[in-house]
């Protein structure tokens, strides 16, 4: 509750604000699930490639088993994203932020 009052009014903006009551934004899914899923998939694929890497491929990468390391890192990152979502699910948004000055 501030004593600043409301910003200047504009009809076009007010119309758009009034429509916000119908907003379906609360139905948006959580992107952490998608990031987690994609990185787990990438992690598994690249780790498996890394396990079966030939000498030539390891030599190309300056002797670093890069597929193995990158794959495991992506796998862990993906799992952490999923864990984060499970640990702290998205807070349900306030039902309606358009209430006149609570």
């Amino acid at each position: 509750m501030s004593n600043d009052g409301q910003p200047a009014q504009d009809p076009l903006i007010d119309e758009a604000q009034a429509e916000q009551r119908r907003s379906a934004a609360a139905r948006l899914f959580d992107i952490r699930r998608v990031i987690g899923g994609l990185f787990v998939a990438y992690g598994v694929i690249v780790t498996l490639i890394g396990v079966f890497d030939s000498r030539a491929e390891i030599d190309k990468a300056e002797g670093v088993r890069i597929n193995l390391w990158a794959g495991l890192t992506m796998l862990v990152f993906g799992l952490l994203m999923l864990l984060w979502q499970w640990w702290r699910p998205a807070e349900a948004p306030a039902p309606n932020e358009q209430q006149p000055d609570a």
Binding site: Q20, S23, A24, A25, R27, L28, F29
Partner: peptide, 19 residues
């Protein structure tokens, strides 16, 4: 495609419903 169900108003489409 999955984001489609969260769009009902123009602000949902242009500004993600400010959410």
């Amino acid at each position: 495609f999955a984001a489609r169900r969260a769009i009902r108003t123009s602000v949902d489409f242009f500004l993600s419903g400010r959410s």
